[in-house]
Design a protein around this nucleic acid. Structure first.
Lengths: 210, 210
DNA sequence: CCAGTTGTGTACTTGAAAGTCAACATAAGG
DNA sequence: CCTTATGTTGACTTTCAAGTACACAACTGG
């Protein structure tokens, strides 16, 4: 029979294969981070064997760096602010990057940022945003330590808001950016308020509205 | 001479040594998570050798579980709400736990929550809070998906606010809880607002106050 | 003061994951 | 059609961290 060949074994041009591996690696790393992800996990995610990875990347570290660089480049492309401000455009850019590659977004901000070996790559990014946020917040918050707190929290909230938005199924995409900004504003508001003693809404009863 | 003995080699009663190891392990794990932390890192952090760890714990996994359990127990002790609501008391409890053990707090919510192997232990905790938050938010936010977004984000913001507060040097401890609540309220407000198009404060110039 | 119990350290074994090698398969060019 | 360059693979070696065995040291009770 002519069906002797078990699998046609699809072959791809080099650049395309490399891209496929990067995508697969992003997915795999995004699940558990660098250390907990084996090269076999990545290989099976990309539907190739482990050796292929070495044909395109020198080592596991090299591959991870490539994944990170690729995602950082995307971020830079979307949110390229010359003076590095934390403004409306920043949120729009972050959101666009997150839509383009949710796994990459999670990888960067949930895993890579906590891995001492690699954090400095993203730390630069975060530090810039935090510094910019501090300047803006310090203008309205006299207390230095308080301003630092808010400045550190604001970018985190923006990022977590975007991740939560992804998890919630990306509801009303057109207004997402505005809501993220609103959430950040709320956080800044908490720092501005000088004499606050607010309470959260009363714990809702299950039968609260008949 | 009587000073022949190089080091007196201080020995501790079992319970005390175990506690010391747990503290050290919490610190070490909090730096890089489970997979990226070697037993040698923990041992040197505790100023003992790796073998001692096995005298107190069966395996690396067992040790990690013990660390997590210890921290979860602390959380439960501080924020024991029978019906599991996300209220003022919850924030107070979280804050108290974070003060008691910053490293443990970070470990739980920055690392363990992202480790598939162990996340379920904390996931129960987080899911309860998120569910409670959803009930409260759903009462004021008609859109289901939007409410889910806010419900998922609110606890995260509370936690991140506390972590940022730790990083900022724990400014004004007496008002910290109120500010955290305020930040959470701000986030909920972002979900409530039906027609939002707010902007962040204008990017501050570097030479804004001479 | 001596013996038993328990905590501690040095040196070793083991297993899993990273990294390597030589052969096969497939498409393009002479 | 045959050669060649490159994508692909199964099987192998190496390396490092988890886990183990045995010898030593210190406190406790007789």
């Amino acid at each position: 029979m002519s069906a002797d060949r078990p699998e046609p074994v699809r072959r791809l041009p080099r650049a395309q294969r490399r891209e496929q591996i990067l995508v697969a690696a992003t997915e795999a790393f995004a699940r558990s981070g660098y250390a907990a992800t084996g090269l076999d996990d990545i290989a099976s995610e990309a539907c190739v064997t482990r050796v292929i990875l070495y044909r395109h990347f020198d080592s596991k570290t090299d591959l991870y760096q490539a994944v990170l660089d690729r995602m950082c480049a995307r971020l830079d492309a979307h949110v390229d602010e010359p003076v590095g401000g934390f403004s409306d455009a920043s949120v729009d850019g972050l959101l666009a990057a997150a839509i383009e590659s949710p796994a990459g977004f999670r990888l960067l901000f949930q895993h890579a940022l906590r891995e001492p070996e690699f954090k400095e790559r993203i730390e630069k990014f975060r530090a810039d945003i935090t510094a910019a946020a501090f300047l803006q917040i310090a203008a309205v918050v006299p207390d230095k330590a308080l301003a630092r707190w808010a400045a550190q929290l604001a970018p985190v909230v923006a990022i977590e808001a975007i991740i939560a938005w992804l998890d919630a199924g990306q509801p009303e995409p057109s207004r997402a950016a505005a809501r993220v900004r609103q959430a950040v504003m709320g956080v800044i508001g908490a720092a501005v308020a000088s004499e606050v003693d607010c309470s959260l809404p009363a714990p809702a009863r299950t039968e609260d509205h008949p």
